[in-house]
Measured scan of single mutants.
Amino acid sequence: MQIFVKTLTGKTITSEVEPSDTIENVKAKIQDKEGIPPDQQRLIFAGKQLEDGRTLSDYNIQKESTLHLVLR
């Protein structure tokens, strides 16, 4: 499924993921596309910071959901 990751600069990254993918996994995909190390990434969805060990389905993230990427 496709999800969108919006950066603070307003850029939107499209990523191909599975509901069973972990947040860590998603951060790795963002690193592949943007070159941002996962340890600098914080992903936010519905006002919550997403934890690395959890999966997209844990957070009820569905296709075409938009996550927000904040850098630390």
Results as ranks from 00 to 15, higher is better:
56 L>Y: 02
24 E>C: 09
41 Q>R: 02
31 Q>G: 11
37 P>A: 09
28 A>W: 11
62 Q>V: 13
19 P>T: 07
23 I>Q: 00
1 M>K: 03
12 T>Y: 10
57 S>W: 08
41 Q>D: 02
19 P>F: 06
56 L>W: 02
62 Q>G: 13
67 L>H: 00
22 T>W: 04
54 R>T: 06
65 S>L: 03
72 R>W: 12
26 V>S: 00
66 T>C: 05
34 E>I: 15
62 Q>L: 10
23 I>K: 00
13 I>V: 06
71 L>A: 08
31 Q>F: 15
5 V>Y: 03
53 G>M: 09
69 L>Y: 01
37 P>V: 05
23 I>D: 00
52 D>E: 08
52 D>Q: 04
20 S>H: 11
28 A>N: 10
12 T>P: 03
47 G>E: 04
68 H>M: 13
36 I>C: 04
65 S>W: 03
69 L>V: 06
40 Q>T: 08
11 K>W: 09
51 E>I: 09
16 E>V: 12
60 N>P: 03
71 L>F: 08
44 I>D: 04
63 K>P: 15
38 P>N: 08
50 L>V: 03
25 N>A: 14
69 L>A: 02
21 D>C: 05
69 L>T: 02
3 I>Q: 01
13 I>W: 11
30 I>L: 08
13 I>K: 02
6 K>G: 03
48 K>D: 06
68 H>R: 08
5 V>R: 00
6 K>R: 10
14 T>S: 10
24 E>V: 07
51 E>M: 10
39 D>Q: 11
35 G>W: 03
54 R>V: 06
61 I>A: 02
44 I>V: 09
33 K>G: 06
50 L>P: 00
63 K>C: 07
30 I>S: 02
27 K>P: 01
24 E>D: 08
55 T>S: 08
68 H>C: 11
67 L>Q: 01
69 L>R: 00
48 K>T: 12
31 Q>Y: 15
37 P>C: 07
38 P>L: 14
67 L>M: 05
12 T>I: 15
27 K>R: 05
59 Y>S: 02
48 K>G: 05
70 V>L: 13
3 I>G: 02
46 A>C: 10
22 T>R: 07
41 Q>P: 01
14 T>Q: 09
38 P>F: 13
11 K>C: 11
18 E>H: 14
39 D>H: 12
18 E>Y: 15
9 T>H: 12
28 A>T: 10
55 T>Y: 05
28 A>M: 14
48 K>Q: 13
39 D>F: 10
28 A>G: 10
28 A>V: 11
65 S>T: 08
37 P>D: 08
62 Q>K: 12
9 T>F: 13
55 T>F: 06
50 L>N: 00
43 L>N: 00
39 D>V: 08
9 T>I: 07
11 K>R: 11
63 K>D: 14
5 V>N: 01
45 F>K: 03
4 F>D: 03
15 S>M: 15
21 D>F: 08
44 I>H: 09
19 P>H: 05
43 L>M: 04
58 D>K: 02
25 N>Y: 11
14 T>E: 08
33 K>T: 12
63 K>N: 15
52 D>W: 03
40 Q>K: 11
35 G>F: 04
38 P>Y: 12
69 L>E: 02
52 D>I: 04
18 E>V: 13
31 Q>V: 06
12 T>F: 09
15 S>Q: 15
2 Q>K: 14
44 I>S: 08
3 I>W: 00
32 D>C: 08
66 T>P: 02
